[in-house]
């Protein structure tokens, strides 16, 4: 799975913000803000990946996260993005 074309993550005055452009604006007219780990996961989702792969990378980057917690958090995150039609 990966992020659909037409979504961009940008930093606006210290906030990680996702907006849609092009055809994606037909389905998504909102705006999403992400915290640091959300932005990290977003960067992984730019390329085709899996929850297991992301969980491993997350544990490699953040010291205080175990694989089980990471998997649960990422699953929740990805479910939300799928629900909003951002990830396919």
């Amino acid at each position: 799975m990966k992020i659909k074309e037409g979504f961009m993550l940008r930093n606006i005055a210290g906030n990680n913000v996702v907006v849609a452009v092009g055809k994606a604006t037909l389905d998504f007219s909102g705006m999403i803000t992400l915290n640091g780990s959300g932005a990290f996961l977003w960067s992984l989702l730019q390329n085709d990946t899996t929850i297991d792969e992301m969980a491993l990378k997350m544990c490699g980057t953040y010291d205080d996260v175990n694989i089980e917690t990471a998997t649960n958090d990422i699953t929740e995150f990805v479910t939300k993005l799928k629900g909003a039609g951002i990830v396919e």
Binding site: N15, V19, V21, T33
Partner: peptide, 23 residues
């Protein structure tokens, strides 16, 4: 806060479709 203001400003402007204009 910046994040509150940001949301409001984007809701009260015309959002461009073209990515260059969005940038």
């Amino acid at each position: 806060s910046a994040v509150e203001a940001l949301m409001q400003i984007f809701n009260q402007t015309i959002r461009p479709v073209e990515s260059k204009k969005m940038e």
